[in-house]
């Protein structure tokens, strides 16, 4: 019996499907459950008056814009609605970092409140919130996959691995069509197979990268997602090629010596063992996009899920091998981005 039929379990597989649930089915059920929960949450969010931080009820937004016109700087920003990002202009750094946090707060109803006071930091692990199609767990967009736990756990490890780095300890979200993104020269984006950038985002990302920004791409699998991502990047950087990064590229030795690219499975597969790939993304690859001067602008981790390894590094069932590798890669990315 060919291997694929066992996984599909249909139509000629063993009849055991009545007694055990396959991975695929389990995933479908979980996804359906969370999608419906997400729908309920969205309905709840829009159907009820929003609550102000001082506890008083805000006037009901009958036309959907009155909240935005009343206090522009606190306009609710939706990452789901295309083109609905407010252009916040250029503000002072401390104001900006607070605003950045509020963007994540207000755009993600369930995100923890991260009010940043005090002195701005040198390094922010900024997650790129981009427009895309197909929600994941009902949280507005594929960009928010593993958010915010992956970011939080990652930063707590970074604090120990790079003690000299003055890093902000909490998750942080930026949109690339927001001029303020330029304050954060490193961005992390994942699940980019569902990325569908708006024209302002395309321009914003292009300018960001050409000005000197660095983008880490992670957690997308297989040919179809690759094609979508490649199509998006061709619009962002039409004159730049995506190339394979050899293992002797300095990014693999900047801090840790990495001598092999391994496939990091998602948490489910990692905990259970067995296959590590998703869809047809069997071979993990690290690719890059360079500028005219040969400087690496984008590092692409395809057919691998570093984010899950970061997120579940504290899970005793998640294999150490994967999280070690993922953290080594993550540290190297940061050190490389901050010096090259």
């Amino acid at each position: 019996m060919p291997a694929w039929s066992r996984h599909r379990g249909y139509p000629f597989g063993p009849i055991r499907w009545k007694y055990s649930i396959t991975d695929e089915t389990l995933e479908r059920i979980v996804r359906a459950l969370f999608t419906s929960l997400g729908v309920v949450a969205l309905i709840a969010m829009f159907a009820y008056p929003s609550i102000r931080t001082d506890g008083s009820a805000a006037p009901a937004a009958t036309d959907g814009t009155s909240g935005a016109t009343a206090r522009p700087s606190e306009a609710p920003l939706s990452v789901v609605d295309k083109g609905a990002f407010a252009t916040v202009g250029t503000r002072s750094f401390s104001e900006l970092t607070r605003q950045g946090a509020r963007i994540s707060l207000e755009s993600l109803a369930r995100a923890p409140q991260t009010q940043m006071d005090g002195i701005p930091r040198e390094f922010y692990f900024a997650r790129l919130a981009y427009n895309g199609f197909g929600g994941f767990y009902g949280r507005g967009g594929s960009w928010a996959t593993d958010y915010p736990k992956a970011d939080q756990i990652f930063l707590s490890f970074i604090d120990r691995l790079l003690p000299n780095l003055d890093a902000y300890e909490r998750e942080f979200v930026m949109q690339v069509n927001n001029p303020d993104v330029r304050r954060f020269p490193l961005l992390y984006a994942l699940e980019v197979g569902r990325m569908s950038l708006t024209p302002p985002e395309i321009v914003g990302l292009r300018d960001y990268l050409l000005a000197g920004g660095f983008l880490i791409i992670d957690d997308f699998w297989g040919t179809r997602e690759w094609q979508q991502f490649e199509y998006q990047m061709r619009q962002v950087l039409p004159d730049h090629q995506i190339v394979d990064l050899d293992i002797d590229h300095p990014i693999f030795t900047t801090f840790y010596e990495i001598d092999e690219i391994i496939q990091v499975p998602n948490v489910g597969q990692g905990v259970r063992g067995g296959r590590t790939y998703e869809r047809d993304g069997i071979i993990p690859q690290v690719k890059g996009i360079h500028d005219e001067n040969g400087r690496l602008m984008v590092i692409i981790n395809w057919n691998t899920d570093l984010g899950d390894a970061w997120e579940w590094a504290d899970d005793p069932y998640y294999p150490l091998k994967y999280s070690t590798y993922a953290y080594e890669m993550g540290v190297n990315f940061i050190v490389y981005a901050m010096s090259h």
Partner: peptide, 24 residues
Amino acid sequence: GEPRWEVKFIRRAVSDDENLQVVV
């Protein structure tokens, strides 16, 4: 003494300048 953006951008600023070799 620490990972810093200044390193990246100073190197970037002078990378085309053949008369300056900044060893970091």
